[in-house]
Structure formats: C-alpha cells, structure tokens
C-alpha cells in the first residue's frame, strides 16, 4: 500500500457556542492521519462528535481550533476532493436517480451529456441499472442509500466520507451493502473514512479503526485490522475478527452505558 498521507487532521477542537445555554465541547485535540487508499473507520458513543468531525473535514463547519489537510494543503470549505454520504436521506425527491447521481457534476457545471454518462457508470457500479428514471420514493431504503453512494462517487473525490451510511437499513441489507462497499472501494481505490455505530462493520471493512471517547470526543485508541483482503462475509466468523470486536467493545462499553444513563 502506498503510504502518502491523503488526509491529515491536526489538533482539531470544536466547541459549539449556544445562546443562553452552556456551550458544548464536542471535540478536543483530535489528531489523525489517513493514508492514500486506506479505509479507516471511527466508532464511538453517541454524541462523541463523530459527525461533527466529518462535517469539519468536509468543510461544512469550521473547527474552533486546528486544521484539516488534504494532500498537505489546508482546507476550510467543501471541495471536489471530498464527498459525503450522509446518514439521513439526502436525495432530491423531485429528481430521478440519474439526475440525483449527476447532481454534484451539474453543480460543478459539467455539461449534461457528460454528467449523465458519468452518472450512468456509477449507477451501474452501484447495481442500480434499470432504475435510472425512478424517483427516490419509488426505491427501497437500501437502493436509496446506493444512490447516495453513487452520487458521492460520481464527482470522483479523493476522499469518501461516510456518516453511518447503512444505519437505517435492516441487518441483511446492511451486510450486503457492506460487501458492495468493499468491492467498490477495491475497484476505485478511494480513501475512505467511515463513521459507524456497528463495531463489526468497522472491523470488517477497515484497515484501521479509531475509537472515540465520549464527549468531548478524543481519540481513545487506534486499532489496526490485519485481516487478509479481499474479505468476504466469512471473515466475520473468524476468531481474530471476534477478538477485535470484543476489544473495541470493552473500550467503549462503559461510555455507552454512561451515555444511556445521562439520557
């Protein structure tokens, strides 16, 4: 694997100031690096600032301190080198699948024919062939999320940022989507940063798993996943796999429980 650093996060802090209420410290002194072509996941209790970090990396919000570098250059706003798949449905309901996938390209003023050609390629990659002219409400949740992934891939970003992309899906669909994501990643060699609640999902997909502590989010531990690639669903039955999952679970269990008590 090439070892060039694609994404570098330096001493990121984020404090949300609120009117008439105490401010919230969401992130404290986050440092991390993601190599070119690497697949890294972040897991952590709810409210540990994972989505906040992802928004900062994408440039949707500005950090209170620290900076984000892509290929060594600081970034402070969204750019074509990064694309996000959000947890919530964020397809335009009045656009067809192909127009949704082409959306990022259209915003970048790519001519329509070219945009549609590229979109078609990623529709095929995402296994949505034949659904080009459907509207999002005519698709299942799993298909909609594949459209979201295709839309992010279509702008050809260097870094794919995924915020719990499969959280809303049922267990079976999720497993299938994980396998598909892996094959897409192997094909496109994107750098991927995935946020997830599912520890087994993180271990199954990643080269490295970063465990966040509860609020304020800090990097608690980084775990290298040395399971051989390419991986298929059988990996999940291996003892190495369960060992890693158990280890990560003990790291965050106490915090998840504490979070539950706080409500």
């Amino acid at each position: 694997m090439s070892t060039a650093v694609r994404l570098k996060i330096e001493a990121i802090d984020k404090v949300f100031k609120r009117r008439d209420k105490p401010s919230i410290e969401a992130l404290r002194n986050i440092d991390m690096e993601v190599a070119e072509g690497e697949f890294v996941s972040i897991v952590g209790a709810s409210g540990s600032g994972k989505s906040t970090l992802l928004r900062i990396i994408d440039g949707l919000i500005t950090p209170s301190g620290g900076r984000v570098l892509v290929d060594g250059r600081p970034v402070d706003r969204p750019g074509p080198d990064r694309a996000v798949v959000f947890q919530q449905d964020s397809l335009l309901p009045w656009k067809t699948v192909i127009d949704n996938v082409a959306y990022g390209l259209t915003l970048a003023r790519v001519p329509k024919a070219d945009a549609h050609r590229t979109a078609q390629r990623f529709i095929d990659v995402a296994g949505l062939h034949g659904f080009e002219h459907h509207y999002p409400h005519q698709l299942s949740g799993g298909m909609r999320q594949r459209v979201n992934v295709a839309r992010a891939l279509a702008v050809n970003p260097k870094i794919l940022l995924l915020d719990e992309p499969f959280a809303a899906l049922d267990a079976q669909t999720r497993e299938i989507m994980q396998a598909e994501l892996l094959s897409i990643w192997q094909e496109t060699r994107k750098t991927v940063l995935l946020i997830t609640h599912q520890i087994d999902e993180a271990v199954f997909l990643s080269d490295r798993v970063i465990v966040f502590s509860a609020r304020p989010g800090t990097v608690r531990e980084e775990i290298r996943v040395d399971l051989p690639r390419p991986r298929d669903l059988h990996v999940k039955r291996s003892p190495e796999f369960s060992g890693l999952v158990d280890h990560i679970w003990t790291l965050i269990e106490a915090e998840v429980r504490a979070g539950l008590r706080q409500g």
């Binding site: 074509p80 959000f86 919530q88 964020s90 970048a108």
Partner: peptide
C-alpha cells in the same frame, strides 16, 4: 436542512 447541507457539500 439535510438537502441544503448535501448541496453545500457539493460546493453549491
């Protein structure tokens, strides 16, 4: 809001 954020993430 979510759609606006998605648009912003594509640099709209």
């Amino acid at each position: 809001r979510q759609l606006v954020e998605a648009a912003r993430s594509f640099n709209a």
